[in-house]
Design a protein around this nucleic acid. Structure first.
Lengths: 253, 253
DNA sequence: GCAAAAGTGTTGAGCATACACCCATGT
DNA sequence: ACATGGGTGTATGCTCAACACTTTTGC
């Protein structure tokens, strides 16, 4: 939560630069140790949790705004981003309104407005990401899907909707290029799918199916060093991958 | 196009009642004589075409606004509506801006604003719909997908995106309850699918597949009067239909 | 040599496709 | 009777799920 002075400064700045009534909230998915993780923000000195979000510059394309916001939170550029829904319940930002309503008169108070928020989800490489808190937050951190905090506002709904969309997407689009390192083994990729879908898949059928999509390249060198039989390393064939992204494929899990 | 007086009145009213920077545009699909039709508006005395759209009251949920707008255009209530995308290119409403920029100073000119538009598509019963023009339009009429006008703004993109979404939806959701009359024959339903997908389907396989979804009820009375063998009449089993809407089914066309 | 991880193969069920055939009705 | 639209049946092939077998590696 901001101090009165901080709020006043923020509002003056926001009114000048941002489109009113509109925000962007992002669900940033990463994959680490077999668990799907989401970037969450914790407010200073409070047990309050949010998804990373922000506002749109007056003359900025939506997707650019989402990219800019995420770059600030993750240091990542060129993130895979997908708009998935607009949340516009008139009461959805009431908590924010109540929190700040006594500090500034409504006319200059940015948070006295109703906000529609455009939901984006992002898929990022966990290891390339350096979470950065924003001016409202004390920390920005990864949380597993099995260990989510209680979100403020409608951010739990936003997260759930993003996850549902992602699961649906899995049925007709390749996923993984943005979530995996450059090279990976088939079992590692399978763990990603299992984490997203929250269910076990058959090792052998997964392999056949995945290879059938024709979006993977097997490198000559298997991964060494581990115990047991050395698995092959794969990477995505970007050309085919992107063709599949555009055209989609059939069938589901 | 509005007169200066009309514009001034509209803008004063809009500024008081509507959320700035945000509009809603709707792609209304109907089905008639084997062709998918879309509701389009024609501007008075100009060869300019738009999709039906409008603005959101300051305290109105998005979906309510879309419903209200469509009720005005179609006289229909309780329309099947699906939000599908937000279009937010900063230049997208430039045509509107240019058209009205000399009539009113930017400060009072509603159309001097940048607008994000939330795209909804609607599925309606062609025969229940009575198209009504709005204050900007001279006519509101159905046009077949094969006979679309050149749209202004980005409305061609909005329509295409809606159609793509609808086709995707066909893969995992039942469609038809909102587009067909209460009772219909299997060949009639097939024509709907063919019109949406723009390709021929096998009569017999379509029937088996459709019945396999378990969302149809066959009535005892076949349709009489026509030449040839009397086809059975079907209606949707609303309970199963809605369950299928929620849970989706697998496989595509 | 054994356990565990990973690669490859096989089989059977179910579903989609492409047909063939039968029934009803108006001309 | 026959053309046409419509309902039902069947053979083929493909895909997916389930499961068996083999290979590699560290202990």
């Amino acid at each position: 939560m901001l101090t009165k002075k901080g709020l006043k400064e923020f509002c003056a700045d926001a009114r000048e630069n941002y489109l009113p009534h509109i925000s962007i909230d992002c669900v940033v998915f990463g994959f680490h140790e077999g668990i799907m993780k989401v970037l969450v923000l914790k407010v200073q000195n409070e047990d309050e949790w949010y998804l990373p979000g922000g506002f749109m510059l007056k003359n900025e394309p939506i997707e650019k705004a989402a990219n800019r916001i995420l770059k600030e939170r993750t240091t990542l550029d060129k993130i895979f981003l997908q708009q998935f829904h607009v949340f516009g319940d008139p009461e959805r930002s009431k908590e924010h309104f109540d929190m700040y309503k006594d500090m500034l008169p409504a006319k200059e108070n940015w948070f006295a407005n109703r906000f529609l928020t455009i939901g984006y989800y992002a898929l990022v490489d966990f290891f390339e990401t350096s979470p950065n808190p924003d001016q409202f937050a004390e920390s920005c951190q990864w949380r597993g899907l099995d260990d989510l905090p209680d979100f403020k506002l409608d951010h739990a709904l936003i997260l759930k909707t993003a996850l549902d969309t992602l699961r649906l997407q899995l049925n007709y689009q390749p996923i993984g290029y943005n979530l995996m390192p450059k090279e990976f083994t088939m079992p590692e990729l399978q763990k990603l799918y299992e984490a997203i879908l929250d269910k076990k898949l058959d090792r052998r059928n997964f392999q056949r199916r995945m290879l059938g999509f024709g979006i993977l390249t097997r490198s000559d060198e298997p991964r060494k060093g581990g115990a047991h039989k050395a698995p092959y390393l794969y990477s995505f064939d970007l050309e085919n991958y992107e063709a599949a992204l555009r055209e989609g494929f059939k069938g589901g899990w």
